[in-house]
Amino acid sequence: KEQQNAFYEILHLPNLTEEQRNGFIQSLKDDPSVSKEILAEAKKLNDAQA
């Protein structure tokens, strides 16, 4: 469930490039146990690119 939530949120971050988004999603698939950390990174990058 946590992985699904992170997946959904990353898909809807407006400021990520397609490449960045795909990278985060691939990381989620590779290691779902760190989905919280991956989501935090994605949000940080999204904010930095706002």
Score class of each variant (00 low, 15 high):
Glu2Asn: 03
Ser33Ile: 12
Ile38Ser: 02
Leu13Ala: 03
Lys43Leu: 10
Gly23Leu: 06
Phe24Tyr: 02
Gln4His: 06
Gln4Phe: 09
Gly23Asp: 08
His12Leu: 11
Leu39Trp: 10
Asn22Arg: 10
Gln49Ile: 14
Lys44Asn: 10
Asn22Tyr: 14
Ile10Ser: 01
Gly23Gln: 04
Glu41Ile: 13
Tyr8Ile: 06
Ile38Leu: 05
Ser27Asp: 11
Asn22His: 07
Phe24Ala: 03
Lys43Val: 09
Gln20Arg: 02
Gln4Gly: 06
Glu19Arg: 09
Lys1Thr: 15
Ser35Leu: 15
Lys1Phe: 15
Asn22Thr: 14
Phe7Asn: 05
Ser27Arg: 14
Leu28Phe: 06
Leu45Arg: 08
Phe24Pro: 00
Arg21Ala: 08
Ser33Trp: 14
Glu19Leu: 10
Gln26Thr: 08
Asp47Glu: 14
Ile38Ala: 04
Leu45Trp: 12
Pro32Gly: 06
Leu28Tyr: 05
Ser33Tyr: 13
Asp47Met: 11
His12Tyr: 10
Asn22Ile: 11
Lys43Ala: 03
His12Thr: 10
Phe24Asp: 00
His12Pro: 01
Ala6Asp: 04
Lys1Glu: 15
Leu28Arg: 00
Gln3Arg: 00
Lys44His: 12
Leu39Pro: 00
Glu18Gly: 09
Leu11Met: 02
Gln20Trp: 01
Gln20Asp: 05
Leu28Met: 13
Leu13Ser: 02
Gly23Glu: 05
His12Gln: 13
Arg21Leu: 08
Ala48Asp: 15
Ala42Ser: 05
Ser33Cys: 03
Leu45Phe: 07
Ala50Gly: 14
Ala40Tyr: 07
Gln20Lys: 02
Glu41Gly: 05
Asp31Trp: 12
Ser33Glu: 06
Gln20Glu: 08
Pro14Met: 13
Glu9Val: 13
Pro14Thr: 12
Lys43Thr: 08
Lys43Asn: 12
Ile25Tyr: 07
Asn5Val: 15
Gln26Gly: 08
Asp30His: 14
Ala50Trp: 09
Ala48His: 14
Gln49Thr: 01
Ile38Phe: 03
Val34Pro: 05
Glu19Lys: 07
Lys44Phe: 12
Ser33Pro: 07
Glu18Asn: 13
Leu16Met: 03
Asp47Ser: 14
Thr17Gln: 05
Asp30Trp: 10
Glu9Gly: 06
Ala42Asp: 00
Gln4Thr: 09
